[in-house]
Structure formats: C-alpha cells, structure tokens
Design a protein around this nucleic acid. Sequence first.
DNA 1: CCCTCATTTCCGATGATTGGAAAACTCACT
DNA 2: AGTGAGTTTTCCAATCATCGGAAATGAGGG
Lengths: 286, 286
Amino acid sequence: MPKQRQGTPVSMLARQLTILDAFDAGTAFLTLSEIAERSGLPMTTTHRLVGELVEERMLERLPDRSYQLGLRLWELAARTPRAMGLREIAYPMVQLVQNQVRQHTQLGVEGGYDVVYLERMSRSDAVVNATIVGGRISLGASAIGHVLLSDRPKEFLAEVVESGIRRYTDKTPQTFAELLELVERAREVGYSIAEGFIHPAARGMAAPIYGADGQVLAGLGVVVPSGGPVDMRIVELLRRAARGVSQQMRAAYIDPNHPNALPGAKFRVLINSSKSSMEYFDEDGS
Amino acid sequence: MPKQRQGTPVSMLARQLTILDAFDAGTAFLTLSEIAERSGLPMTTTHRLVGELVEERMLERLPDRSYQLGLRLWELAARTPRAMGLREIAYPMVQLVQNQVRQHTQLGVEGGYDVVYLERMSRSDAVVNATIVGGRISLGASAIGHVLLSDRPKEFLAEVVESGIRRYTDKTPQTFAELLELVERAREVGYSIAEGFIHPAARGMAAPIYGADGQVLAGLGVVVPSGGPVDMRIVELLRRAARGVSQQMRAAYIDPNHPNALPGAKFRVLINSSKSSMEYFDEDGS
DNA sequence: CCCTCATTTCCGATGATTGGAAAACTCACT
DNA sequence: AGTGAGTTTTCCAATCATCGGAAATGAGGG
C-alpha cells in the first residue's frame, strides 16, 4: 500500500515553479535527477511535471538528456509591461547615462522585498558590482531600492526589514530606523545615495522613474567608487534621464503607435489619477 | 448535482498557460472576466487559477482590479540560454549590422514551427516589417526561418508546410518543393534571401549563428527594400557578424567569467561533438 | 438608493495527481 | 560484447486537490 500525499498540501503551480526555480543564476543546465534533488520533489512526480513543462515548451530537452529553461518563458516575458516593456523603453536613457558616467549603470523595479534588475551596463574597468540582470538584492540594501521604497508606506519598510536584509558590509542598513531615515531623505531630495552598503568600495546612486499615475515605477542608478564628495552632476544626469524614461513610458501607454506601445484600454485609470502626472515629464527622450 | 469535468482532460499547466496566453501582443491588461472569456475557462476556475498565478507573481493585480503579466516571468526568462542568453550576447553584433545597413535588423530562433524574434532594431525610415520582439512568423515564410531550417531534416520541413504557412503575398512559399529548394540553397551558399515573401516591398536576408556543437542556433537578418540585385556586401556583413556571435556564444559556454556566462557543466557535450566547431569562429566580436 | 455586472465564496462529486515499486535504459569501464 | 551503478521511465491503486454550478457579495453608474 503506497504512502500517499502525506505532508504536501501544495498547489500544482507551486511545484512547477519549484522545478523552474531549480535553474538559478549559476545553473543553466540540469538533468532530471538534479532537478528532483534541487526541488525536493519525488523522482516520479518530477518526471511527470518536467514532461508537461517540456510539452508546453517551458523547458527544453537537450540531446544529452539534460534540460534548460525554454523559449516559452521568453515569449511570455516579452509581453510583461513592468519588465520587458520598461526595459526596452528605458534602454536609450540607460545607455546615455552609461556613456556619460562610464561606470555600472542599472535599472531595477520592485519584486517582493527585493530590487529585480532589468538592465545592467558595465565597463570592465568599473568598480565591483554584485548585481546581474534578472538578479535580486534586498530593497533595503540598494540605492535603487531606496527610491522604490520612497513611494511606499512605512509598514512596507518594516516588512522589508522583517524579511531580513543581508549584511553585505557593516554599513548595510539593518534596522527600521536606519532604513526609514535613508528612504525619507531619498523622497525629500529626489534621489538616493548608498555609500558602501553592498561593497565597501562602491557607492550606489539612483533616481526614481515615475509611472503615468505619478507613482514610482522603477529606479535608474549607477555604481561609482565610494569616498569623496557626491558628484552632483551625476545626480542631475540620473534625475534627468529618469524623467526622460518616465515621459517615454507615458507615451507608450497613451500612443498605440509608439514603438514600445503598451496596449489595452488603460487610459482612464492612468490619467484620472489623484496626482497630476505632467509635472514629471519635461524632457524629450527620443 | 453539479455537472462535473465532462470534456476536459487537460493538465493544470495547460490551463494556466491558456490564461497567460490571453495576454497577447495587443493586450497588456485584462480583467478577470476578460481572461475567462479569452481563455474559454469557466469563471470559477479562472478565478482560482488567476489567484494562484498572482500568488506566485506570474500575474500582477493593478489597483483597478485588472491584471498584467508579472515580473516572475521575466526573472525566469532572464535565465533562458536560448533567449536572453543569446540576445544579450548577440546585442553588439546586431547593433553593428544595424549601424551599417540602417534598415530593420533582427535576431530569431526556432520555436515550434515559427521563428521567434529575440531582437529587432529599426529605423523609422526603413521599409515595412511585420515582426515584433517576442513575436512569431512561420519558419517557412522568413529569411531567418530558412537558415534555421537549413540545419534540419527534410521531415521537419514537411511538418512546417503541414502546419500551414500563412500566405502573406503570392510569393510566400506554400509547397514542400518550394521550401525545400529555398532551404537547400540557403545551406549551400550559407545565407538566405526572402524576396517579397512577407511583404511585396521587403527583401529579407539572413545568415546562420552556430552553437558550439556546430548546429544552427539562431539567425541574424535584415529587411531591405525589395527589387534590384542582391547587395553582397550586406551578405558578407551578416555572415561575419553571425560568426562573431557564434564565437561569443562559445566563449560564454566555456568561460565561467565571461560577462554573459552560461554556466553548468556542459563542457563535454558541447566540445566532444561530432562536428568540429572551430571552423565557425574566426572573428573577434568583443 | 437601486440596478446591473463583475467578483468571490461555498461545497459535494470526481478524476487528475501522487509516489512506491519495478522495469527499462544509459553509459563508463572492462 | 559483458557487467554493473546510476538514471530514467512505466505502472497503478489510493486519495485529495480540482472542478464548476449556484448563490452571496461587492463595485460602479445613474
């Protein structure tokens, strides 16, 4: 008599995602048994689920019987407004900043209690930088995180602290009070500085990108060597570039012929908002 | 007594994907009932599945109760070797071609019986072009499709024809014989020309990108005005750029410190292959 | 306030899902 | 070719998560 479903009241979807998540940043290829081991699912169940995922092209099987993440994921992701949508629209501005500052330049949005990095342009000679495209870092530790948090209620900051901010250096914010001060300051001045929070030699700088309804959608930032006075020219460049992205986002929402149009009748919602949004757009980014 | 599961022997995963697929290229935002209608699932089932998808951040709920595709999809897609992996690696070469040719430049891989476009760079003054990033066009109708097919058995070509090639113009290949001739020619000369197959005024040109094991992984192409002789300088540029991408791909596979490294012990498989792969790499693309 | 339409909760019937056991297959090494 | 350790696939009976109709609840417009 087989022992059945003892301690597993989990949804199908959660299990499928456990399997997909087995492919982390350092692991592009896995065999069936490796997937089973990493996901903690029984072999048989893994076997069936992997089969279904291959059927749907979420996974692909290679000639040597190992698996990799499939194209179907990309096809879906390409339609994600907050990720590909934003990334494509922001690209020219990220490049502009990168050309001027010639250091790591990155674009990130909020995902859970982390910043999810959508874009990262680097120079080989730039200072160290822990992030990768598609990677995550706690909202509490990153300059982009702080501008994202500057738009959110205090309770959310508390949750971020609660969730645990990895202590990269002895300067990484760890308490609610520390984080609150940094975030409030970011809101007041309209940008954030993260001096040695992730690496002693690195200073993060970031400015907010606003959605059409005036809320903070994303952050645009650079990583420069730490120490010395803050270069306000970089701050101004970031703010201007971020405003340019905001404007392009708005154009993409309201103009169905925009090269990166985000279609679907969202007009009312995006325009009849409490906050006027026009104030955020004053630079042509095309 | 409720009528139960009559004609629905479908897997959970297939239903979830039906829901995600309801968000097509022209539809970034949908309400619950719109999702139910588009996916053809009963309201109640849709409600539960959408709830689970939101829970897992595959969908996101907006303040006006509509839904959009979620960041989780992006995070997974960012680790897809054949999509993001290739796209990021190929980017500089695509840009190089675009700068020289100053027409639509695109990068595509095989997905089912279609080309899936990973990248597309355009000029506002360039000729018409039907493709979008993340979009699909039958392998049989596209220049990139023909170079992808040039590496595949005849039986697969037959399946492509079987699957139905949309008749964009009266030149769009429709029969197995037509397609076979085009694809064989592409294999012989190492590039493909699609004269008016998708639009009367457009000529597609493409060259193959090879994986480390010598098989065709992707195609790099341009869309130029149709008519007149084929510009062999463009053909050579495409072939050279495509070879550069091939080389970078190989570097990403074997060097874990490559900026776009594709990690995971694939050495044996990729190197101990029947075909020698060195012949494909003769240009430094960095 | 009322009415309409959209969303959510409820719940009994049921079949898709589960996972142990065993068979089948791979591949490295003789 | 033969052996054997490891991996992958098939099989199948028990069962619990899923299904969807019905009804309650909520939202928004007039």
